[in-house]
Design a protein around this nucleic acid. Structure first.
Lengths: 188, 188
DNA sequence: GTCTATAGATGGATAGAC
DNA sequence: GTCTATCCATCTATAGAC
């Protein structure tokens, strides 16, 4: 055979990773199939060997990005809960995360567009997200806190990214971090 | 003259209101100029009498929507701070707000796309947003709390909208509301 | 000021060569 | 499996009639 075994799966994986970066950076609707494949060094013709449509790519992206996020949220298992919270907040609510959506969490970048996708795509989103909140819940003590924690940090990064200067961005990130600490302290 | 005085300003205002609904519903990049103007009962040719480009519309939309949001956030001035917080949370974190982005806050719907706009547009965003946070700060006691409060509710509605079923959506809304109460209680 | 018509570019997706 | 070439629809924006 002309291609080594697993070539197909590898290429699909590469497409998911590179197009994930492009889409988080520029948005899903705003990005053409040409731009998606160009980042992986192939042309649009090759795209349709791996995905039935652009909409199918979004579903696959949500799965792929959820898995990546889940691993980032897990973090170092040796940390105490308090240490884990501190390092997680410091990393998620960091200016680097604001400046580099392409390598960051999928949620601030794509959730608004996922909200406009079909029911099937949103189900994939929920499945992926529940893995994240399950991990979060382990550290925070309840699902309720996990959802609220997630909402807070996603909202903060989302808003920070739309602000035009670094000072304002930091103001949001700092405020968010402080707020979370107070809420967690309040409930013991 | 064939048109009554103020016709131009009125029509522009009408375009802002109707296109605001369409854009919050379907996204800015995903909506063509035809769809924007169709909602106002005119054709795309008329659009360019009022706006130099589609990008200019986004800036005008951010101004317009910020003003509308600011008024909604203000609420009834006769309420006590606690009452104001309760009614504001109940309205913003309500399933109706999740189901109807077209008549809701601009932030969960468009912030991700604003984050990808040029510096000028994002400056307009900051100016509008600071009016909102100033009003919020009056009620909550500090700018810091205002930013965090806003991040929390925006993140919650954003995520809820992407979830496929009502039960999950309510879970996020409820968790966020509870979290905010705890954070505010913690700081007195 | 708004319309129809259209230019010019780009969108998603497919066909056939290799 | 990937390429080039292309179809057809849609996009932003403009021109000219009314």
């Amino acid at each position: 055979m002309r291609y080594k075994p697993g070539h197909n799966a590898e290429r699909r994986q590469a497409l998911l990773q590179t197009s994930g970066r492009v889409v988080k950076q520029n948005g899903f609707a705003a990005t053409g199939v040409d731009a998606l494949t160009q980042a992986a060094g192939v042309t649009s013709g090759a795209f349709y060997t791996h995905f039935a449509s652009k909409a199918e790519l979004l579903k696959a992206l949500i799965e792929s990005e959820s898995q990546a996020s889940r691993q980032r949220w897990d973090g170092d298992p040796q940390l105490s809960d308090d240490e884990w919270i501190a390092t997680t907040l410091a990393r998620y609510l960091h200016p680097d995360h604001v400046h580099h959506p392409e390598s960051g969490c999928v949620l601030p970048a794509l959730t608004a567009e996922i909200a406009r996708a079909d029911q099937d795509t949103r189900q994939v989103f929920e499945d992926g997200l529940r893995q994240v909140t399950a991990a979060l819940s382990q550290r925070l003590g309840s699902d309720e806190r996990a959802w609220a924690f997630l909402s807070q940090v996603v909202g903060a990064v989302l808003i920070a990214r739309a602000l035009p200067n670094e000072a304002s961005q930091r103001q949001v990130l700092q405020a968010s971090q402080q707020f979370i600490r107070q809420a967690l302290a309040a409930a013991g």
